[in-house]
């Protein structure tokens, strides 16, 4: 019980620290602009790809499939990068990881908390993308879907899966050199391709759709699309055939597995790093 309370306190303090690091270099308007411009530009790029390829406008269910998938993928990408990169940032750049490691702070809770502000920021960015799509591009979004049990439970479980995976990747960073700083982005890149974020998984070549069916994030995006734009769900017959309850069950199991697995991997890597004396070792080129 004391351990849980300590982890919660560490998480809260680390979240405040991460927020400060992310936002104390400029005024809120500048930071807010930056938060929105990048994901919006990435989304507009896909909107233009859609227009070039089909030119059928936002009423086409494929547009909604691509748009909503892109909006929510930004959360996954940001979470994987931000949480896993905390280790590199604090070990190599600010050189503060030794201070954290020698204090009574559970390192995994600290790492998760330190990356929380990026997760929150990416959620805001996703919200802005959806609002822009609905108001400016005519995306047929059902706002009531945001309060549906499928969306709320699916969102929470998917984010938990992403955080679990990111903590595992942060653990890998503890025992690898700076050369591998792109690990979070690399995994996010694989998931971008395989999770059906911008095209139905049936379009994947070389039988890669089988891999897609093993990824929780494929089901996560489906659970978020379905309440918001039900027509978009039909783009992927494989996923459309799965019931809401089954989607949530898959997400519940995967988030539990990724959460427990990520934490176990992090702890194993932390033990290894401490034993080998490399926890705070800078790895300049």
């Amino acid at each position: 019980m004391i351990g849980v309370a300590r982890a919660a306190r560490s998480f809260r303090s680390a979240a405040w620290l991460g927020w400060s690091v992310d936002t104390n270099w400029a005024d809120p308007v500048t930071i807010g602009t930056l938060l929105v411009v990048r994901p919006l530009a990435a989304t507009m790029l896909l909107v233009l790809i859609f227009e070039v390829a089909r030119g059928t406008g936002s009423a086409d269910p494929r547009f909604a499939h691509l748009y909503v998938g892109t909006a929510f993928y930004t959360i996954l990408g940001a979470t994987l990068h931000a949480i896993s990169f905390v280790v590199m940032d604090d070990r190599e750049r600010y050189e503060t990881i030794r201070v954290v490691a020698t204090s009574p702070v559970p390192l995994a809770a600290y790492v998760a908390g330190r990356g929380l502000s990026s997760l929150v920021n990416s959620c805001v960015g996703a919200g802005v993308i959806l609002a822009f799509g609905s108001l400016a591009l005519g995306l047929p979004l059902r706002p009531a879907g945001l309060l549906s049990p499928l969306f709320l439970a699916g969102f929470g479980l998917g984010v938990a899966s992403a955080v679990g995976l990111a903590i595992g990747l942060a653990g890998v960073h503890l025992v690898t050199a700076r050369h591998h700083y792109l690990l979070g982005e690399s995994v996010a890149g694989v998931l971008y391709l395989l999770s059906g974020a911008i095209f139905p998984i049936e379009a994947l070549p070389f039988g890669a759709d089988r891999l897609a069916r093993l990824l929780p994030f494929t089901y996560w995006l489906e659970a978020l699309r379905r309440p918001l734009v039900p027509e978009a769900s039909a783009c992927s017959p494989t996923l459309a055939a799965i019931s809401d309850a089954t989607l949530l069950a898959i997400l519940a199991v995967s988030s539990a597995a990724l959460g427990a697995g990520g934490l176990a991997l992090f702890r194993a890597c932390e033990r290894s790093a401490r034993r080998r004396g490399i926890l705070d070792a800078r790895t300049d080129h």
Binding site: I49, A53, R54, R62, L193, L204
Partner: peptide, 8 residues
């Protein structure tokens, strides 16, 4: 693959 799936 996005282009391909959209039939461009």
């Amino acid at each position: 693959l996005a282009y391909r799936s959209l039939g461009a």
